[in-house]
Amino acid sequence: MKKVRWLLMALLLTPALAQPGYDWIVVLGAAQYGGRPSPALERRLEAALHLYQRGLASRVAVAGGKAKGDRYSEGEVGCRYLRQRGLPAKALLCEGQSQNTYENLLFLKPHLSGRILLVTDAPHLPRALFLARLLGLEAEGYPVPGEYPLSYWLREALYRLWLYLGLRPFQSGFSPHGLKSLPPGVLGNPGTPAKGP
């Protein structure tokens, strides 16, 4: 069953990846812990780094706000991670206010143009693409491989059903101040590991 699922994903999404010429690679938010990416966020960031190094796009946007009580946003942690791995500051755009996938895309939308390549977990990608197209973004996707539990696939299927029924995604609010281009040094010395446990 798992091999069939991956074969279908590959058939649907590989043609998009075979063609360079994206304007943006967009990494959708996932948790961070004390300034370090969660395993899910790290997988997404590594995939985006690989795609950037292959020349699929010249800019990378990283989205995601803070959970209650967090010191760092997902976008900030993601940008720092990519800077530490050699991406130039001028190639990065960091969004740090969004609280869900819809807001990730909504808050980035005014700053994106042309073709974008969404990078997220394979179960999450169909919903992310649906939302991107709902917002009028010219989006294609890259499914990050992993061992995803059946519950994740089922939850995402229910979310998609919600959207397909014409019900709107939730939005917690918009703050334009959460978005910034990453000037050199804005997140500290890129060579210094993130602080935290």
Rank of each mutant, 00 (worst) to 15 (best):
E95F: 09
G55A: 12
K109F: 00
R83P: 00
L49T: 07
K109Y: 04
V144N: 06
G21N: 09
G29P: 09
L87W: 00
R133D: 14
I25F: 02
L112I: 03
R155T: 13
G69A: 02
A31R: 13
A31W: 03
L56Q: 06
A30H: 08
G35Y: 04
Y52P: 02
G34P: 13
G69E: 04
F107K: 08
A132H: 07
L56N: 03
S58L: 15
G34M: 06
G78T: 09
R85D: 00
G141C: 10
L92H: 00
R44N: 08
P143D: 00
K109L: 03
A89V: 09
E42N: 13
R80G: 14
L118E: 00
S113M: 06
A122F: 05
Y148Q: 02
Q99N: 13
L17M: 14
L93E: 10
S73R: 07
G78A: 10
G141S: 08
R115E: 03
L51E: 11
R44E: 08
A89Y: 01
P20M: 04
S73Q: 08
L82E: 01
Q84D: 06
R54A: 14
R155Y: 11
L135V: 12
G141E: 01
P126D: 04
E156G: 09
A157Y: 14
G146D: 11
F130D: 13
G86V: 04
G64K: 01
E95L: 06
G75L: 05
E140N: 12
E138R: 13
G78C: 09
L137Q: 11
Q99L: 15
L117K: 03
A63T: 10
G55T: 05
Y22F: 15
P145K: 13
L93Y: 09
Y22P: 00
G78N: 08
E138P: 14
E95K: 09
L87T: 06
A157K: 14
G78K: 05
P149D: 15
L117M: 04
A57N: 07
R59T: 10
T101R: 04
L41M: 15
P149C: 11
P143C: 00
V144L: 10
L51W: 01
L108G: 05
R44T: 04
S38I: 08
L154G: 14
Q97C: 14
A48M: 12
G136H: 06
P149I: 10
L105F: 03
